[in-house]
């Protein structure tokens, strides 16, 4: 078995209003004037676990991201990285 570490970002889908992103945008505007400012707020997750190989690890991390970390009705997820790490 090998040890893997996956990093996942979950964001609101483009057609779902990102209310926290809007709030962040207002907050940033109050601090600094920036041209064409856009903000998005999401969640970042880091999950480490053991798996036989990279293929199996990717299957697991994908399932976790789909079933628990995100809701496909309103969110998308992206596996930013999946690396083998030292035990």
């Amino acid at each position: 078995m090998k040890k893997f570490c996956g990093k996942i970002i979950v964001k609101m889908k483009p057609d779902v209003k990102d209310i926290k992103g809007e709030a962040l945008k207002q907050a940033v505007k109050s601090v600094v004037e920036l041209h064409d400012l856009q903000c998005a707020v999401g969640n970042w997750y880091q999950i480490s676990f053991c798996a036989k190989n990279q293929v199996e690890a990717l299957k697991f991390i994908d399932k976790i991201a789909q079933d628990i970390l995100s809701n496909e009705v309103i969110e998308t997820y992206e596996i930013k990285s999946l690396e083998e790490i030292d035990e």
Binding site: M12, V16, K17, I19, K20, A23, N71, V73, I74
Partner: peptide
């Protein structure tokens, strides 16, 4: 129930957070 997909849709943050 929405998260379980037993009902359609989802509940997100209130419009004024």
């Amino acid at each position: 129930l929405c998260e379980s997909k037993l009902l359609p849709g989802a509940l997100i943050d209130n419009k004024n957070i």
